[in-house]
């Protein structure tokens, strides 16, 4: 489903991803953990085409995402090509990124109407279902700014799902929230994980959540995967020393 092949990403002289190889299967839920600056968020941003690779190729469903085919060669993708591959990917951001110029309902319907070409009725039906799913069916006519952070983030989840992506990227979606609002958002995501087969790539510091929803954990350090495995193994019995110290630090914090 998602394949990274020798992917290199640099910001200036800082190497964020260092010849990274990994893949995620259809329907799999993979959580990326590791210290900040280890490249987790960059992986999601590359998949959302918000960043460009400096080396290697990213594939989604066998199709190159970072590049396009010209003859037998792969050349960096242009915007028109990106629009055809980007539709498979949806993303929820740490800071929600809701559009303050639109009401809650419009945040969820505008892209399906204008990008997917849905009729207004269809888009509204779909949006209402999704907003019910995230527990905000009664807030559709409010402005995003009048909602709590947790509510805004749940709208953002509905907005991403309304585009019916194959892969959902969750980028530290609870990091900007007050502690008492985190649970609501995570419960919504648990529901979605259980009731759908959508592929998920998750960056989070919520280890219990990662344990509950993931099939696999990837531990990152300095742009490389230092350890990977099933959640039980990684959390109960990590092998790599870096994983052990990281988990100890994260778990002590709470």
């Amino acid at each position: 489903m998602v394949l990274f092949e020798q992917v290199v990403k640099r910001f200036g002289s800082n190497i964020v991803l260092d010849h990274l190889d990994f893949s995620v299967a259809q329907g799999e839920r993979v959580t990326l953990i590791g210290p900040s600056g280890s490249g987790k968020t960059t992986i999601l941003r590359l998949l959302m085409t918000l960043e460009k690779v400096n080396g290697g190729v990213v594939y989604v469903e066998g199709q190159p995402l970072s590049h396009m085919k010209r003859g037998s060669q792969l050349v960096p993708a242009n915007e028109r090509y990106l629009r055809t591959v980007r539709k498979k990917i949806g993303m929820v951001f740490q800071q929600f990124n809701l559009f303050p110029n639109m009401k809650v309902l419009d945040n969820v319907t505008e892209a399906p109407i204008h990008v997917l070409g849905l009729s207004k009725e269809e888009a509204v039906d779909r949006a209402k279902q999704l907003l019910d799913l995230v527990g905000l069916g009664d807030r559709i006519n409010q402005h995003p700014t009048s909602l709590s952070g947790g509510q805004q983030q749940r709208v953002a989840i509905a907005r991403a799902l309304a585009m019916q992506p194959d892969v959902l990227l969750l980028d530290e979606v609870t990091s900007a929230l007050d502690p008492e609002l985190v649970a609501d958002v995570l419960n919504v995501l648990r529901d979605i994980a259980q009731s759908t087969t959508i592929t998920m790539l998750i960056v989070t510091h919520e280890m219990q959540f990662a344990r509950d929803v993931s099939n696999r954990i990837l531990m990152f350090d300095k742009g490389r995967i230092v350890e990977e495995g099933q959640p039980d193994k990684i959390f109960s019995n990590p092998e790599h020393e870096r994983t052990q110290t990281f988990l100890r630090a994260v778990l002590e914090e709470r």
Partner: peptide
């Protein structure tokens, strides 16, 4: 972040 939100919804530059 607003541009990125719009890109993530696959809007065209004009949209």
């Amino acid at each position: 972040a607003q541009w990125e939100g719009a890109v993530a919804l696959n809007m065209t530059g004009f949209q």
